[in-house]
Design a protein around this nucleic acid. Sequence first.
RNA 1: UAUACAGA
Length: 250
Amino acid sequence: VVTYSVAVDACARAGGPTAVDQAFELVDEMQKYGLEPNIVTYNSLIHACARAKRTDMAFQVLNQMKMAGVTPDIVTLCSLVDACGRAGQIDSAFMAIRTLPREFPSLSPNVPAYNALIHACFKAQNINRMHDALQDMQDRSLQPNVVTFSTLISAYAACGEIERATATLRKMREVGIKPNRMTFTSIIAAYGQRGEVDLAMAMLDEAKRSCGEPDEELYTASLVAAVGGGRKELAMKVSKEMDRAGYVVP
RNA sequence: UAUACAGA
């Protein structure tokens, strides 16, 4: 069962429609051998559906597991919310996070589940619902983590709300959560969009100090900011660093 | 360390 679950998970990671089909075939196959999928197998299968944006299949798997007497857990819930989010179905995402815990009282939405919900709203470009999700999370006394804050910052960056993005960065620091490379990438993208190249470069320096060597995404965001702001010298400098770090300069 | 969430 573990072997098959690992294989199903590999399909989930591979992503895409072909991979989901393979994942379902694997589950059929294990059942032919008399092996019953367990919670991890089912959760991996739902994850594969999520990555393929197949919300319908994800909920079919949920029904299948209920029929088999396997009780959904918090990973199941998070994956289902994520599936709805990837497919742009935010109403379904809110419904899942509200109704599943009613059906299964052992289920209580956790921070990753709310993060998936917040990200769903972000992808649907619905800031109001994103704030609803955040509020629900706080009403449950769940503390936002680095993923929550980074998601919020990306969302604000995406809609040009740079003040909110920086305010969120400030707040996360106040509560003692250290921004990571992803967080810095989003903030730099926000500054880049606004043409605030110097502020973007200051954040790059800070990222280096607190997170070590930047990764490709972080460098790219910085480079895009410098180029977008027409700052050739800075763009050259970042390109050089990027090249020296072994990344292909876009 | 078999499964879930973030980098316009």
